[in-house]
Structures are given as C-alpha cells and as structure tokens.
Amino acid sequence: MKRTIKAMLACSAAMLGTAAAAETMTIGITQNNVGVDSYQTTYEKAFIEAADANPDVEAVVLDAGGDVARQIAQIEDLIQQEVDAIIIWPTNGEAVIPAVRKAKQAGIPVVITNSNIAEQGFDFVSSFSGPDNITQGARAAEIMCDKFKEMGTDTEAQIVQISGQPGYTTAIERAKGFEDRLPEVCPDVTLLESQPGDWNREKSQQVMEAFLVKYDDIDGVYAGDDNMGVGALNAAKAAGRAGDIIFVGATNFSVGYEAMEAGEYWGSIYQSPVDDAKAALQTAIDILGGKELPFLNYFDTPKITQDNMAEFDKPVF
C-alpha cells in the first residue's frame, strides 16, 4: 500500500512538473541590427531584462546584424525549434514575408516590433507593437512648420530631408508622414531633396555636407532619427552654417536632447526603446494568453522641442 501511495505521489509530482514546464512560454526574437545605434542596443537590454524578470518566459534572443538572409534563416530556425511565439524587428518589410508566412502555417503567432512589415504580409501577423511612424513624421512636420511660422519664414523656407535605410518600413513611413503633412500645414515650404542616411551619423554628416555644397539656402533639416540629425548638425557646424538652419528629428536620442539643451537642435519625437521592448514582449505574452489585441498596437510618441523638453527625462540611449 505504501509503495502504491509513493508511486501515486511520484506520478502526481511528475505530472505537476510537466504542467509547470508546459506553462513556460518560449518566445524568440530576431532583431534588425543591434550594433547600428544605441536605440537598438538599449531595446535589446530592456527586452532581456523584462524576459528574465518573468518566470513564465524563456527568451531566445537573436540579432540579424542588418542582413535580410540571416534574419530569414533565424526565423526558420525558431520555427524548427517550435517556439511558442516569434517577435520580429524586420530588416526589410517585404523580404521577410515568406518566412512570416511559414511561421503562420506552423501555428506560431508572430509579433512585429518597432517597424512594420509591408501590408501584403499583415494576414500572417498576430499584432504589431511599436510606434506609429507615419504620425511621427507628421508631428515632425508640424514642429518644423510651427517654428518657421514663429520666425516668419514659412512662406519661403527651403528644407532637405535625411531619411533612414531604404526599404526599411520605419524609414518609408516617417518620410511619408512628413512629406504628406508638411504641405498641409506649410504649403509654401519647399522640400529641395531627400537622401538616405541609413540611420548612421557619419553617413548623414556626409549627406549633409553634399547638401551644403549643392544648396546655398537651406532653412531646415528633417532627419528620420536624431542620430542622423546630429550628423547633419555636425556638418553644418563645420561649415559655419548651423545657426541658420532649423534641425528637427525623430526618436529623441541623448545626443539630440543634448543638442537641444545647447540650443543647436530645435525638436524631435520622444520615443523610449525600453517601452518599445517591454510592449513587444507583453504583446506576445498577451497573445499566448488568449487576449484580444488590436492589430496595430501603438504606444504614444509625443513632440519634444526646446520649449517643452524640461517635461521629459533625458533619453538613456
């Protein structure tokens, strides 16, 4: 009888252990390019910390290093591992769609984080978690236009744009938001030219150097993030023309915040990589828990300028 009870207890313990193990969610993430800027580096750190703090989550954290083929291989590997959910920060909004379709076919929910995939892939995605990049671009246009109106130059100003990596959804959407909104609020402002800065400060500085040679009159610069915006500012400072130009960016980096404090950089859009990472992980957890979520699960990204920056903490990235 004792042996029977012991056997039953052992069996019950094994079953409980199996149930506990089954409750653990394995969530894989493949990121765009952690080394390219401090935002993505901070995002990864925050994601790992949030996953480690949750006893029900086991995270598999991967980085594509900006390589589309590598990211596709990582997604396929996560499918083979039979993870419970996959979070993707796309290297390219169109190229990853076939791999996302494979995850859907395997019954694995996919969360797209930070930068959405192309619309034709939406049917294979459970939810997008991140900023509304079109709204960010529109808000940046409003920041720039309001400043021109304050200066009385809104009827004649000429500007240039430094966008992000070509083919990258965030870059496309922020540029679209800016370009669509600017003529609505400042119809007489002329956008002279747009060139990619690839999210890189040094390349953006070179792009701005070329703009300064090509155009004698530049009144404003819109950059797809502050990392590129500060690169443009550095070029203008070296050419002795920074004081004549209004600089507006997006994703307020610490270098952008510092340039605003110095009175050299006018405004940006405030976005936290920590909030971004936590939101992506929570979205995956909620989906696995059966919660109903909106497909576009945005978090707010307000305007920040020299006038209201005291209301915001300095970014940690």
Rank of each mutant, 00 (worst) to 15 (best):
G289H: 01
V60P: 05
F312T: 14
I5K: 06
R174G: 06
C11S: 12
V255P: 04
Y270W: 08
E142L: 01
Y215R: 02
K314H: 09
I75R: 04
L78V: 03
G290R: 14
M208R: 07
A232G: 11
V111A: 02
D132W: 01
F148T: 07
L212E: 10
Y43Q: 01
A277R: 11
A53E: 04
C11P: 01
Q71W: 02
G177F: 08
G229P: 09
F299A: 09
G66D: 09
E202M: 14
A141K: 00
V274D: 06
D244C: 02
A13M: 13
E49V: 08
T18A: 15
E261R: 02
Q40A: 03
V110Y: 06
K176F: 15
F253A: 15
E58Q: 03
I97G: 02
I75P: 04
A259P: 08
Q105K: 15
V185Y: 09
I245Y: 13
T42C: 10
P109M: 02
K303E: 15
I72A: 08
L192D: 14
D123W: 00
L233A: 15
A69S: 13
M309A: 10
E184G: 00
D276M: 12
D188C: 12
P294D: 12
P166H: 12
T190D: 05
F124A: 07
Q71G: 11
V83I: 06
N308Q: 10
Y265L: 03
